[in-house]
């Protein structure tokens, strides 16, 4: 199961062990962990809630993993994204990619995150001292995703 959307936290070490499971072809594991910060756009953040589009979210993430596997010579990829209420310091997202060499696994891992940021239907609502607000999409995320095109 390369894609999971869940409320529960995840154990990076256990997930990596499962991804490797004695596969001696693997020479590189690239990972990314996204974490809730206590600050965004100049305001303190006390908590956030992640909403998503059940069904489409999983399809979008699976499509991104399939595209990564088509672009780079990697063995496997795993994406876990949490939803629901999250507090600062909690883990939000995990991407892990296995391959023979670091170059392709690093690139595939970064690609999956950049596409997840702009294509997977998740929305963050954060609570600040000034009240609750929906997080605005960032232009820098669009720019990051576009560099993989063409």
């Amino acid at each position: 199961m390369p894609v999971r959307v869940q409320e529960a936290d995840f154990d990076v070490s256990a997930e990596l062990a499962a991804l490797r499971q004695g596969d001696a072809r693997i020479g590189a594991l690239a990972t990314f962990v996204g974490v809730v910060r206590d600050m965004n756009d100049g305001s303190g953040v006390s908590e956030m809630t992640l909403e998503h589009y059940p069904g489409m979210t999983e399809k979008a993430l699976e499509a991104i993993v399939i595209e990564a596997k088509g672009r780079w010579n990697i063995f496997d990829a795993l994406v876990i994204h949490r939803v629901g209420r999250l507090l600062p310091t909690e883990q939000i997202v995990f991407v892990a990619v296995s391959g023979a060499h670091r170059g392709e696994t690093f690139a595939a891992c970064e690609f999956i995150m950049d596409y997840l940021k702009t294509r997977a239907p998740f929305w963050k609502r954060e609570v600040t001292a000034e009240g609750a607000r929906w997080v605005d999409a960032r232009e820098t995320d669009d720019t990051a995703a576009k560099r993989w095109q063409g």
Binding site: Y53, M56, K117, R119, A120, P121, W134, D136, A137, D141
Partner: peptide, 10 residues
């Protein structure tokens, strides 16, 4: 059919 603002996950 779904309508939504730009996504902000990750």
């Amino acid at each position: 059919v779904a309508f939504f603002p730009p996504v902000t996950g990750g």
